[in-house]
Write a protein that binds this DNA or RNA. Structure first.
Length: 289
DNA sequence: AATCTTTACAACCGCTTCCTC
DNA sequence: GGAGGAAGCGGTTGTAAAGAT
């Protein structure tokens, strides 16, 4: 294609950012605001690619960024969200205040996925060994108190302490493109009788919805893909991560008051499709963001 | 103490999607 | 509707530092 590169590569700095570069970028964005990344390096006097500037700002310099020490609550939320969303790191990050998609992705790839695999492996072994109950002992993550990277992290915090002052800000990535999540459903041996209800199926970690679908498009999508649509727009209603975790996502979607009760009554095979109201709500949220 | 290996994370890269004209 | 620019996303890589030998 005839598309021009995002920036001229000649004479550009690569690799780690220096404190001076960080300061220049921060000062420029504080003065002129975000956006126009392609032209930003030139105007700010940085020998960096615009994409690099954007990444540095979003993942490192932006106010409100939390760095290091992922809490157990956050970790559990990441696991749950990953179960729901897959590798939609920006969406996951959008639900973890102060965390960036890059950080969560790195944390997942370097720590969580290995530990989960290990646990899975242990569980399988335990099952094969007549359910011998031994608590899995995942390898201790290196980002404990003796984490070798801590100096780097501390350095980062030090460099951006002024910007991090606004701790209460919720950093939301602009994950505007993913409005639906598809999860392969259990095979449906027989059509289920329609039940006018919605809810979260804890056993299968999915939302189920058996209402009539007024949206022809959604209905068609459901029929054609046989996938489940899920909505996570209302996750933002949870101020505390622990609250969200405890909820087991049964209260995330504002379906109806009886949704949580209904969830336990639904069979795993029953499908869920995002309701029209929720879809509009979700899309509306995206426009606001 | 020196060297090798492993780990964690910042940054890069290419592709996709959105937006504007 | 199509083209091109801008921005976003996720996979991958490079590398510094800690641990192991």
């Amino acid at each position: 294609m005839g598309r021009s590169p995002c920036c001229a590569k000649e004479g550009m700095n690569k690799g780690s950012w220096t404190a001076m570069e960080d300061k220049i970028l921060s000062d420029y964005i504080k003065t002129h605001g975000e956006g126009r990344w392609r032209n930003l390096p030139k105007r700010a006097g940085l020998k960096r690619c615009g994409k690099s500037c954007r990444l540095r700002w979003l993942n490192y310099l932006r106010p409100g960024i939390k760095r290091g020490n992922i809490t157990p609550d956050e970790e559990e939320l990441i696991i749950r969200l990953h179960k729901l969303l897959g590798n939609r790191w920006s969406l996951i990050a959008g639900r973890l205040p102060g965390r960036t998609d890059n950080e969560i992705k790195n944390y997942w790839n370097t720590s969580l996925s290995k530990r989960l695999n290990q646990q899975q492996h242990n569980n399988n072994n335990n099952n094969n060994n007549n359910n011998q109950v031994t608590k899995s002992s995942p390898k201790k993550p290196r980002n404990d108190s003796k984490n070798k990277k801590l100096p780097t992290i501390d350095h980062a915090v030090q460099k951006t302490s002024a910007q991090v002052a606004i701790e209460s800000n919720v950093v939301r990535t602009k994950a505007v493109r993913c409005t639906k999540v598809f999860i392969n459903p259990q095979p449906q041996p027989q059509p289920q009788p329609p039940i006018s209800s919605t809810g979260y199926n804890v056993d299968n970690n999915i939302w189920v919805d058996n209402n009539d679908y007024s949206s022809p498009r959604l209905d068609e999508e459901y029929k054609m893909s046989s996938d489940l649509l899920m909505d996570v727009s209302n996750l933002g209603d949870f101020d505390l991560i622990s609250e969200l975790i405890k909820s087991d996502f049964s209260e995330i979607c504002d379906f109806s008051n009886e949704s949580s009760n209904v969830a336990s009554e639904l069979s795993p095979e029953q499908p869920f499709v995002l309701s029209q109201e929720l879809l509009e709500d979700w899309l509306g949220n995206q426009q606001v963001m």
